[in-house]
Amino acid sequence: MNTITPNLDGRQLRIGIVQARFTNEIGSEMLKVCCRTLKELGVADEDITVATVPGALEVPIALMNLASSEQFDALIAIGVVIRGETYHFELVSNESGAGVTRVGLDYNIPIANAILTTENDEQAVARIEEKASDAAKVAVECANLVNHLLEAQFAEEDEK
């Protein structure tokens, strides 16, 4: 059996982050935690690019443009969608999530989706630290996994 072990070494990785500014206090704190964790994992300041957009629905278009640049090993989506009294919560949650997933699959780039969907501000605040830190770890681990798999694929093709 050949097992690929998780690799959380962020050195040499380039990470793009898109932060939705709606509910900016929570998103800004998530961004701080995420960047701090990326640095702890070895990602250099100059290898982290941050773009902001008005809200969660705009996150996928920014991710798509970052992905199409082919300058990043992984991307991170940060934002908060808090339930209101209308169907808008479901629309924003579902469409932003589907868009983030589609970009990752279309461009073969790992995207850590840290767009919180909560009932209220208190739930969002309670999840800042864990969700933002996890997003950084997921981005680094998945970037290393995809890079490893691509290297193995190219090595196999070279042997043929």
Rank of each mutant, 00 (worst) to 15 (best):
E85F: 01
V59L: 08
E119K: 10
C34L: 07
K32A: 12
Q71S: 13
F89L: 07
F22N: 03
V53H: 05
Q71E: 15
G27T: 06
T23K: 11
R36A: 15
D106W: 00
M64G: 12
G55T: 10
A44R: 08
V18F: 03
A67E: 07
C34Y: 04
N113E: 02
G27V: 05
Q153C: 09
F89V: 07
E130N: 12
F72N: 02
G16P: 06
A44T: 10
A74I: 08
H88S: 08
A136K: 04
I17M: 06
E29G: 06
D158L: 13
A112W: 02
T37L: 04
I48Q: 04
Q19T: 10
D134W: 11
C142Y: 14
R14T: 13
L57T: 07
C35F: 00
A143C: 11
D158A: 15
V80I: 03
R36S: 15
F22T: 06
G84S: 07
N24D: 15
K39I: 12
T3I: 15
L75N: 03
M64A: 15
A124D: 01
N2L: 12
G84Q: 06
A143S: 10
C35R: 14
I115F: 02
I48Y: 02
K160T: 12
D158C: 00
R83L: 02
A98H: 09
K137V: 10
M30Q: 14
H148M: 11
I78G: 04
M1L: 11
T49Q: 08
Y107N: 08
G42Y: 04
S133C: 09
E122A: 13
N2S: 12
A20C: 10
L91H: 11
V53F: 02
T86D: 07
L8W: 08
L150R: 15
E29T: 13
M1Y: 11
L75H: 03
N144H: 08
V33Y: 03
E95Y: 11
N144L: 00
V140Q: 03
N7G: 09
T49R: 10
A139M: 07
E157L: 14
V53L: 08
L91S: 00
E40R: 15
S133V: 00
A20L: 04
S96F: 01
E70C: 06
G104K: 03
E95D: 09
V138C: 09
K131T: 13
T86L: 05
V50S: 07
Q19D: 01
N120E: 04
A77W: 05
N108C: 08
E40L: 13
I111E: 03
V138S: 05
N144W: 04
A124S: 14
D47P: 01
Q153W: 05
N147Q: 12
G16N: 05
V43Y: 02
E119P: 00
V53P: 06
G84V: 03
G55E: 09
T3H: 13
Q19L: 15
E70G: 06
M1C: 10
E46V: 13
A112M: 05
A152M: 14
D121N: 10
I26Q: 02
T3A: 12
L57N: 09
T37N: 05
R11V: 11
D158W: 05
G99L: 04
L63F: 06
H148E: 14
E85C: 00
A155T: 12
Q123K: 08
V103C: 07
V140F: 05
P6I: 09
A155N: 12
